[in-house]
């Protein structure tokens, strides 16, 4: 599972949707793999508005990436983003994958397993 994906998912338990603790889910025992993707600066600029930055900072720090700016970059024509920031984001968001591990809800503590890079959000019957 790619790190960018973790920015779009939350706990599957309905009662957790209203809790701020259910997002982002927290990685545990994550095995990371880097898979090369062609770098495209425009593409990174396009996905910035679709990212919840505070959640990304939390996720990144949990996985050992601590070089993200504290505030979401707001590139303009006069002040475009520096190449290094774009490359850091590219590496973290698109190239870093979790192949095995767990995602844990900070509200209900439910654990979602990741196998072969695919996270399983099916719930046990008593939680559906």
């Amino acid at each position: 599972m790619k790190i960018l994906t973790s920015n779009y998912i939350t706990c599957a338990v309905k009662a957790c949707k209203s809790s701020t603790l259910s997002f982002p889910l927290h990685f545990q025992d994550a095995e990371l793999v880097q898979e090369e993707v062609d770098f495209n600066a425009e593409f990174i600029v396009g996905i910035l508005p679709r990212i919840e930055w505070d959640a990304l900072i939390v996720t990144a720090a949990e996985l050992g990436f601590t070089n993200l700016p504290a505030q979401k970059p707001e590139p303009t024509e006069e002040a475009p983003l520096g190449e290094q920031v774009l490359k850091d984001l590219h590496k973290l968001l698109l190239e870093t994958q979790v192949t095995e591990g767990k995602l844990v809800c900070g509200n209900c503590q439910h654990i979602y397993n990741i196998h072969q890079g695919i996270a399983n959000f099916l719930l046990p019957n008593h939680l559906v």
Binding site: M1, K2, L4, T5, N7, Y8, I9, T10, C11, A12, K14, K17, F23, V37, F43, E52, L94, Y112, G117, I118, A119, N120, F121, L122, L123, V128
Partner: peptide, 20 residues
């Protein structure tokens, strides 16, 4: 386009509000 992932799950239950 950029393919993110496939997830195992029931309809849209793990998706964050307003994310799609």
């Amino acid at each position: 386009g950029f393919y993110l992932d496939s997830l195992t799950g029931n309809l849209t239950t793990p998706l964050r509000d307003g994310s799609v």
